[in-house]
Every structure is written in structure tokens, then in C-alpha cells.
């Protein structure tokens, strides 16, 4: 809990940077508006099926490459580190369990989401901010087309579909990467490896990673869309919007991750 003195210190620090703090608050408000205005509006979801499919292809299928490479390498690194540091103290069965648990609970979701921010989030911000500076967003508005409905909504739905699927895919490849090291390099039996994975699997932990997928998708996409829509004029504005979106997305994903872990730790 924050006591009165802590609060006073926090406020004193914030008062040293009033403009930055106001800018931050303004952005948080804008991100919430982007998320809720795009999602809780009357939508004709069926007439946007093509737009949603296109976005699933761009966000989901387009990110398979980077997620695959990051996940396999992540699995190799995770198991190597655990084996290298703890291999002489714990049995190999526990190494497999440690890898499986960390992948299902944390690494799969976080790794895939950070890769998606880098691949899909930046594309979304760059695309929307370019549309903003070339007056395409204004053109949509003058045709009475709401950009939150036409541009943001399909991307949000595509993220809700793509993030959880890519997280499962990433978890699978993380474990595959770990298996390459443990089975083919370290010489552990494949049956024992799979048994270890099966034994350590818990549905609630898998559900936690799916919740993370949906939340991280919503966070990353709403932040990317918000900074795209609020980009200022020129190429510099596009660059600034993209950079800021990535920074906000990564920090917000880590914060949300911590909160989800805390909530699930109650069970």
C-alpha cells in the first residue's frame, strides 16, 4: 500500500516534470479511448470480414517467421542456461519441468508478444501514421466513415485471434527448441522428455497464457493505433509515433504481465 509520505514523494517527483506527466496522462486516456471506442461501438462485423482476414494475414501469418526464430532460439537458450547453471544440482527431470513451466506461464506469451510488437505493432503504427499525415484519415472522416470502426476495429479483432494462436505456436516451438538441446545435444531420451512435459502441464497455467495473449494483443494494438492516429505531420512524425508506440507497448505488456501473474497466483 502507498502511504501518505510515499504519495507525497511521488507527487513531488511528478511535479518536477509537469509537461511530461500531462503528456503521459493524455496518452493513457487516448489509448483507453482507442480501445473502448473501437470495441464498444455498433459494428457491422460481417461487412468487415475481408478487412479482418487481411489483418489476420498481416498480423498473424506475417509474424510467423519472427515468432518461430525467436521461440526456437529462446527455448535453446532457456534450457542451456538452466542446464549449465543448475544441471549439477538437480535431476534432468526437473530441468524439463522448469523449462516447460517457464514457457507455458511466461516465456511463450511474453516472447511472442514482444516479437509481435516489433513486427506487427510497428507496422500498424507506421501504416496509420502515414495515412494520417497524407490526409487519408481525414478523407475517411469526410466520407462519414469512422476510422476507429474502419481501421482500428479490424486490427483489434485480428489481434484477439492472432495473439493467442501465435502464443500457443510459440510455446510449442520454445519446447521444441528445448527438446533439440536436451534430446539431441544432451542425449536425454525423447520419451522421458515428453513425459516430463506432460507431467508439468497444468490447464490453469495454459489458461493464464491465453488470457495474456488476449490482453497483450489488446494493449499492443490499441497503443499502436492510438499513436498512429495522433501522429503529427511529416516523416519525423511517423518515426516518432512508431518509436513511442513500441516503448509504450513493451512497458505496458510487462506491467500487464505482472498484474496477470498476481491475479492468477490467487488460485
Amino acid at each position: 500500500m502507498v502511504n501518505a509520505l510515499d504519495l507525497e514523494i511521488i507527487l513531488m517527483i511528478l511535479s518536477l516534470f509537469p509537461n511530461k506527466f500531462l503528456y503521459f496522462l493524455n496518452n493513457i486516456g487516448g489509448i483507453y479511448y482507442t480501445l473502448f471506442h473501437s470495441m464498444f461501438k455498433k459494428h457491422g462485423i460481417f461487412k468487415k470480414t475481408n478487412l479482418i482476414i487481411n489483418e489476420v494475414i498481416e498480423i498473424g501469418i506475417g509474424s510467423i517467421g519472427v515468432v518461430s526464430i525467436a521461440s526456437i532460439l529462446g527455448g535453446l537458450i532457456a534450457v542451456f542456461l538452466i542446464q549449465d547453471r543448475l544441471g549439477s544440482y538437480i535431476p534432468e527431470y526437473f530441468i524439463i519441468e522448469a523449462v516447460a513451466k517457464s514457457v507455458i506461464i511466461e516465456l511463450g506469451a511474453l516472447g511472442a508478444s514482444i516479437a509481435l510488437v516489433g513486427r506487427a505493432g510497428t507496422r500498424i503504427t507506421a501504416e496509420i501514421s502515414t495515412m494520417k499525415v497524407s490526409e487519408e484519415i481525414d478523407a475517411l472522416k469526410t466520407m462519414a466513415i469512422d476510422p476507429y470502426d474502419y481501421i482500428v476495429f479490424p486490427k483489434m479483432i485480428a489481434s484477439f485471434i492472432s495473439y493467442p494462436i501465435l502464443i500457443v505456436y510459440s510455446q510449442f516451438l520454445f519446447i521444441f527448441g528445448a527438446m533439440i538441446y536436451i534430446v539431441f545435444i544432451h542425449g536425454f531420451g525423447i520419451q522421458s522428455f515428453l513425459f516430463g512435459i506432460r507431467e508439468s502441464f497444468k490447464m490453469i497455467e495454459f489458461a493464464q497464457s491465453m488470457v495474456k495473449g488476449i490482453v497483450f494483443g489488446a494493449i499492443s494494438t490499441s497503443i499502436s493505433c492510438y499513436f498512429g492516429l495522433s501522429a503529427s505531420k511529416g516523416a519525423k512524425g511517423v518515426g516518432e509515433a512508431t518509436t513511442t508506440a513500441v516503448v509504450y507497448s513493451v512497458i505496458s505488456i510487462f506491467l500487464a504481465d505482472f498484474m496477470i501473474i498476481k491475479i492468477f497466483s490467487i488460485w
Binding site: T130, M131, S134, E135, E136, D138, A139, L140, K141, T142, M143, A144
Partner: peptide, 16 residues
């Protein structure tokens, strides 16, 4: 009101 107005932008602003 926008449904009553057509707007031609200086940059044309067609969706690329």
C-alpha cells in the same frame, strides 16, 4: 452533416 458534403483534398488523399 458529412454525408451531405463531398471533400476533395489538395493531396487527393486516396487510400493508397
Amino acid at each position: 452533416i458529412r454525408k451531405k458534403i463531398g471533400f476533395v483534398f489538395q493531396s487527393s488523399a486516396l487510400i493508397e
